[in-house]
Simulated assay, not measured.
Amino acid sequence: MLHFLIATHGPLASALISSAKMVFGELQNTSCVSLTEEGGIEQFKQDFNTEIRDIASQVEGIVVLCDLECGTPYNIACTYAFDGSFPVPVEVVTGINFPTLLMTADFVEESDPASVAQTLQQEALNTIVVAKPVSVEQDDDF
């Protein structure tokens, strides 16, 4: 079983989870940690450490979904992903968006976070579209 940890700047992570509850319902094995101006980087490090270590004892792997490559949440998450002594594998995917978060529900029962991270990356490419009008031809047969 996997856990999805959303790590973002500001309230984005909690807003994504709140929105997911409106559209999808409760997302299993999903939690978040936010970097806030009030807490700063040191508080985020502490909160992230507490959350990821609590999760690690309950799952086979963790996929961290971040908002921005090379931002603090991403950098902190990568320290766990690249730590060979961490108790479970951790993958970090950046560029989280709402459709990608909803997709995670399909992967909770998986056990390979690397494979899931790759799939989410590929599927996320399909979630960004440019709207174009659709022309509909009227059928003369009523």
Rank of each mutant, 00 (worst) to 15 (best):
1 M>T: 09
2 L>A: 08
2 L>K: 06
2 L>D: 10
3 H>T: 09
3 H>E: 12
3 H>A: 11
4 F>Q: 07
4 F>A: 00
5 L>V: 08
5 L>M: 03
8 T>E: 06
8 T>D: 09
9 H>V: 14
10 G>V: 03
13 A>L: 02
14 S>L: 04
14 S>E: 05
17 I>M: 10
20 A>E: 12
22 M>P: 12
23 V>Y: 02
24 F>K: 11
25 G>V: 15
27 L>D: 10
28 Q>V: 11
29 N>Y: 03
32 C>M: 13
33 V>W: 04
33 V>T: 11
33 V>Q: 09
34 S>F: 07
35 L>Q: 13
36 T>K: 09
37 E>D: 14
37 E>R: 10
38 E>I: 15
38 E>P: 11
39 G>L: 12
39 G>E: 13
39 G>I: 14
41 I>E: 14
44 F>D: 07
45 K>I: 15
45 K>Y: 07
46 Q>K: 15
47 D>W: 04
52 I>F: 09
54 D>C: 11
54 D>T: 15
55 I>W: 04
55 I>H: 11
57 S>N: 14
57 S>T: 15
59 V>P: 06
59 V>K: 00
60 E>P: 10
60 E>F: 09
61 G>F: 08
62 I>K: 00
66 C>T: 08
66 C>A: 14
69 E>C: 00
69 E>L: 01
70 C>I: 15
71 G>S: 12
74 Y>T: 14
76 I>H: 06
78 C>G: 04
79 T>M: 08
80 Y>F: 09
80 Y>R: 06
81 A>C: 13
82 F>W: 14
82 F>V: 01
83 D>E: 14
83 D>A: 06
84 G>C: 02
85 S>L: 01
86 F>C: 04
88 V>I: 13
88 V>N: 06
93 V>C: 01
94 T>F: 04
94 T>I: 07
94 T>W: 04
95 G>P: 10
96 I>Q: 08
96 I>M: 09
96 I>N: 03
97 N>W: 00
98 F>S: 04
98 F>L: 05
99 P>I: 03
99 P>E: 08
102 L>Q: 05
102 L>E: 11
102 L>G: 06
103 M>T: 02
103 M>I: 03
103 M>E: 09
103 M>P: 01
104 T>S: 06
106 D>T: 07
108 V>M: 05
108 V>E: 10
111 S>C: 04
112 D>M: 01
112 D>W: 02
113 P>A: 04
113 P>V: 02
114 A>T: 06
117 A>V: 00
117 A>N: 00
118 Q>Y: 07
118 Q>H: 06
119 T>D: 07
119 T>P: 04
121 Q>P: 02
121 Q>W: 01
123 E>S: 06
124 A>S: 13
124 A>M: 02
125 L>T: 00
126 N>L: 05
127 T>P: 06
128 I>M: 05
130 V>W: 14
132 K>P: 12
134 V>F: 03
135 S>Q: 15
137 E>S: 07
139 D>N: 11
140 D>F: 11
